[in-house]
Simulated scan of single mutants.
Amino acid sequence: MLTFRNVSKTYADGTRALAGITLSVAPGEILALVGGSGCGKTTLLRLAAGLDTASGGAIHLDGEALDRPHPGVGLVFQEPRLLPWLTVAQNVGFGLAGHGAPERRARVAHALDRVGLAEHADRWPRDLSGGQQQRAAIARAFVAQPKVLLLDEPFSALDAVTRQDLHGHLLGLWAETRPTIVLVTHDVGESAVLADRAVVLRPKPGRIHAIFDIATPRPDDPEANAAATRQLRAALGASLRENA
C-alpha cells in the first residue's frame, strides 16, 4: 500500500506547496489527483517518486520510506523523454538491463504490441508522432512491472482522439499486472474515465478538499462518466472559490 502521512512541502523561498496531506492508495487502485494550478499535484508526485524531499511527514510503500528513487516506483512525465539515440524497442527495454536477453526481448515485444507499436520497434523516436512517442513512454514504464506508477499529466499535450486511444492502451496494460497508479490531471473527464477514486486538491498550500469514489464501470459508460465528471467539476470549482 502507498501511504502519505501528514506530508508537507515548503520551498526555500518560503512557498508552501503542500500542507497536511494524509492519504492511502490501495494496491492496484487507480487514483487521480485533480486541482487547479498551485495545488501541489506535481509536487506530491515528485515526492512519491523520490525526486524531492518532503518538509514534513512521510511517504511509504509497503512500510518502506520513499525518500529517494525506488525500483518499485515508475514515473511517466508530460513529455515522452525518449532517448533519441536508441530505437523505440531499446527505449522501452532501457530499464531491463538486469534481465536476460530473451526475457528482455519478450517483455519489450509484448509491451509494444499492447500499445500498438510492434511495427515501429526499430524506428527512431524522431520518426514517431507525439501520440506514438507517449505510447512508447507508457510501455517503457509498464515493462519494468513497477508496484506503483506515477503519471504526471501524460496526455495533456495530445488531441482528444489520441488521448482517448491512449486511455484504452493504459487500461489494457494496467489490467495485466494491476500496479497502483497515481494520475495527475487537470481533466476531470479523464479522471472519471480512468480512476477508481479522485482526490480534489485545494491550492495555496495544497490540501485535500474532497475525495470521491468513482463508480464508473470499465469499459466506458458515457452516462456514468458524465455524472462523475459533473460531480468532480463542481468540487473543483468549490475548491478554487474557497481560495479566491
Rank of each mutant, 00 (worst) to 15 (best):
T3M: 03
T3I: 00
F4Y: 15
F4H: 10
R5G: 01
N6Q: 15
S8Y: 04
A12T: 09
D13I: 01
D13C: 01
R16L: 14
I21M: 01
V25C: 14
G28W: 03
L33E: 06
G35Q: 07
S37F: 13
C39W: 04
G40S: 12
T42M: 08
T42G: 10
T43H: 08
L44D: 10
L45I: 14
A49D: 09
T53Y: 02
A54K: 10
A54H: 10
S55D: 11
G56R: 10
A58W: 08
I59P: 06
I59A: 06
L61Y: 07
D62S: 12
P69F: 06
L75I: 09
L75K: 01
F77G: 05
P84D: 13
W85T: 12
W85P: 09
L86A: 07
T87D: 11
Q90T: 00
V92K: 02
V92P: 01
G98C: 06
G98I: 10
H99F: 14
A101L: 12
P102A: 14
P102T: 09
P102E: 13
R105S: 12
H110M: 11
A111W: 11
A111P: 09
D113I: 00
V115E: 08
G116Y: 07
E119R: 14
H120C: 14
H120R: 15
A121N: 01
D122N: 15
L128D: 11
S129E: 14
G130D: 05
Q132R: 11
Q132E: 15
A141T: 11
A141E: 03
F142E: 06
P146H: 11
K147Q: 15
V148S: 02
L151C: 06
L151A: 05
A157H: 14
L158S: 04
A160H: 05
T162V: 15
T162Q: 12
D165F: 00
L166M: 15
L170A: 02
G172E: 13
L173P: 04
W174E: 03
L183N: 06
V188D: 00
G189E: 07
G189Q: 04
E190Y: 02
L194H: 03
A195L: 10
K204E: 13
P205R: 02
G206A: 08
I208G: 09
I211R: 13
F212V: 03
T216G: 01
P217W: 02
P219Q: 03
E223S: 11
A224G: 07
R230G: 00
Q231V: 14
Q231D: 12
A234F: 02
A234G: 02
A234L: 12
A235N: 12
L236N: 05
L240K: 03
N243L: 09
N243M: 12
